[in-house]
Design a protein around this nucleic acid. Structure first.
Lengths: 199, 199
DNA sequence: GGAATGACAGATATTGAAATCTGTCAGCTG
DNA sequence: CAGCTGACAGATTTCAATATCTGTCATTCC
């Protein structure tokens, strides 16, 4: 039984949508294109997603969630010390973004456009990431490795201070020479700030 | 003698160009428009600026330099302690950018487009700013307020870690509620990182 | 009867012909 | 004669006609 004759599910529509986005880019990817790729009428796609915006939102959420899930593993590695986990988590986030941007620049540019449109989904994603970071900082505060009065605020500050290394609006800078040294310098400074005894 | 009959100078062309940019935006501001605003033929403008790109570059440089000059005063206030000067400098940079963005959003968007095109000018501007920051960090290292092995590298790290509060690509976030608290949290963390004794 | 279709109205995007712009330069002007 | 002009060729932008798309829904199909 060829894939095209399987039942039409939201998941299959999302896969086709990502493929169409990869091929055509964000501006030219239409619901009709997605339907054509699946061999169905566009009316059928509207049975699963109320609007084109909802479809774009769902496919973007899927894309963002793939990153969050990979990072969650580092948060939960409680055998490692918090500073190590913090550094690994930030490095993994940077590496993940950089690979997405480098491996398929068209698709990355596409999703950058989509995330610009979709405030809500991105906000949730950022909340998930700072939540993960908060858990690491709290672990450090508990073990005495970090001295911070408010772990959640500190986690947000760390996330924002490293935005150059994960926010898509800085993607062009990720291929510049010396970027890895710059990343390390910022992370070192932040870790020193978290570790220093409160004055 | 009305202004339009004064000698045509590079300075007068730059003033007219800024006015045309404010009125028409970056996409629609043509050399012909600038010439019309000055009451001369567009050929005369080309006598002072070889290309349209050169004119845009000059007017952008002028705009960026106005910011650098205002900050230079803080760097040279050597009666104040380095931590205070660092905090003031970062706050002044944020305030300057935020006012530019808030007071005349059209013009700010225009210059954001221009700076995206003009890699060289922006690079110089950033070099000037990190240079100012390096002088403050060096003063702190000399007085013992900061403990850093490489002041220039530390200054770059501080500049990059605060990019959310000065890079135009984050301008939309500058009106969000709580942005001032976030700015303070990041700066506090960085100052703690600079101040902590090396381990 | 639940899922899919395709015709349809209004909104949006594409296209190519016409208008405008950039950059040059021979000649005018004071 | 130094500075300005305006006509020009080729590149770019505008605009309106045309085509395509979004979202709905009465109808068909299994």
């Amino acid at each position: 039984m060829p894939p095209t004759s399987e039942t039409l599910t939201a998941e299959r529509i999302l896969e086709a949508t990502e493929e169409v986005l990869r091929r055509h880019g964000p501006a030219k990817a239409t619901v009709v294109d997605v339907a054509r790729a699946l061999g169905v009428s566009h009316g059928s796609v509207y049975r699963h997603f109320r609007t084109k915006a909802a479809l774009r939102e769902a496919v973007t959420k899927r894309w963002l969630d793939r990153t969050s899930e990979r990072l969650a593993g580092i948060v939960d590695a409680e055998d490692r010390d918090p500073e190590r986990r913090l550094r690994d988590w930030l490095a993994a986030l940077f590496a993940a973004k950089r690979h997405k941007a480098g491996d398929d620049p068209e698709l990355f540019a596409t999703y950058t456009v989509l995330t610009d449109e979709l405030g809500g989904v991105v906000h949730e994603h950022i909340a998930e990431l700072t939540g993960q970071l908060t858990r690491i900082v709290m672990a450090g505060a508990g073990s005495g490795d970090f001295s911070v009065p408010d772990p959640a605020a500190a986690a947000r500050a760390v996330f924002q201070a490293t935005c150059r290394f994960h926010d898509p609006c800085h993607a062009r800078e990720w291929t510049a020479p010396g970027i890895d040294e710059e990343f390390t310098a910022v992370v070192d400074l932040l870790v020193r700030g978290l570790s220093s005894p409160s004055r």
